Simulated assay, not measured.
Amino acid sequence: MKPVSRRTLDWIYSVLLLAIVLISWGYVIYASTVAARRQLRKKYPDRIFGTSENL
């Protein structure tokens, strides 16, 4: 197997780190919206929040 240059390894590590950061932020945003919907549903049970859950 041909050796990989340092620049290529740095690029691969940077792409992997960016992917991990984007996935973790996506999870944080998703979890916070789920928690907010749950709190709104507790506080206002007679209202409809979101469309996909109440079809």
Rank of each mutant, 00 (worst) to 15 (best):
residue 1 M to L: 11
residue 1 M to I: 04
residue 1 M to P: 13
residue 3 P to D: 01
residue 3 P to I: 00
residue 3 P to S: 04
residue 3 P to R: 03
residue 3 P to C: 02
residue 4 V to F: 05
residue 5 S to R: 02
residue 5 S to F: 00
residue 7 R to P: 04
residue 7 R to Q: 14
residue 7 R to H: 11
residue 9 L to I: 09
residue 9 L to N: 05
residue 10 D to V: 00
residue 11 W to G: 12
residue 11 W to L: 14
residue 12 I to V: 10
residue 12 I to K: 09
residue 12 I to Y: 06
residue 13 Y to S: 11
residue 13 Y to E: 15
residue 13 Y to P: 00
residue 13 Y to K: 13
residue 13 Y to R: 15
residue 14 S to V: 02
residue 14 S to C: 08
residue 14 S to A: 12
residue 16 L to E: 07
residue 18 L to K: 03
residue 18 L to R: 05
residue 18 L to I: 01
residue 19 A to C: 12
residue 19 A to M: 11
residue 19 A to Y: 03
residue 19 A to F: 08
residue 20 I to K: 11
residue 22 L to D: 00
residue 22 L to Y: 04
residue 22 L to F: 04
residue 23 I to K: 09
residue 23 I to P: 04
residue 24 S to N: 07
residue 25 W to E: 09
residue 26 G to S: 09
residue 27 Y to P: 11
residue 27 Y to A: 15
residue 27 Y to F: 15
residue 27 Y to T: 15
residue 27 Y to I: 13
residue 28 V to H: 12
residue 28 V to Q: 12
residue 29 I to H: 13
residue 29 I to D: 15
residue 29 I to M: 12
residue 30 Y to R: 12
residue 30 Y to A: 12
residue 31 A to I: 01
residue 32 S to E: 13
residue 32 S to A: 15
residue 32 S to I: 03
residue 32 S to D: 13
residue 32 S to C: 08
residue 34 V to Q: 10
residue 34 V to H: 07
residue 34 V to A: 07
residue 34 V to G: 05
residue 34 V to K: 10
residue 35 A to P: 00
residue 36 A to C: 05
residue 36 A to E: 08
residue 37 R to Q: 06
residue 38 R to K: 12
residue 38 R to C: 02
residue 38 R to P: 02
residue 39 Q to V: 06
residue 39 Q to F: 11
residue 39 Q to T: 08
residue 39 Q to C: 06
residue 39 Q to K: 12
residue 40 L to Q: 01
residue 40 L to Y: 04
residue 40 L to F: 02
residue 41 R to W: 01
residue 41 R to H: 10
residue 42 K to W: 07
residue 42 K to H: 06
residue 43 K to E: 10
residue 43 K to C: 04
residue 43 K to W: 08
residue 44 Y to H: 13
residue 44 Y to W: 07
residue 44 Y to S: 03
residue 45 P to G: 03
residue 46 D to E: 08
residue 47 R to V: 02
residue 47 R to Y: 10
residue 47 R to A: 09
residue 47 R to H: 10
residue 47 R to K: 13
residue 48 I to K: 14
residue 49 F to R: 02
residue 49 F to P: 00
residue 49 F to L: 00
residue 50 G to W: 00
residue 51 T to L: 12
residue 51 T to H: 08
residue 51 T to K: 07
residue 53 E to H: 05
residue 53 E to R: 04
residue 53 E to L: 10
residue 54 N to C: 05
residue 55 L to D: 15
residue 55 L to C: 12
residue 55 L to R: 14
residue 55 L to I: 11
residue 55 L to A: 14
residue 55 L to Q: 15
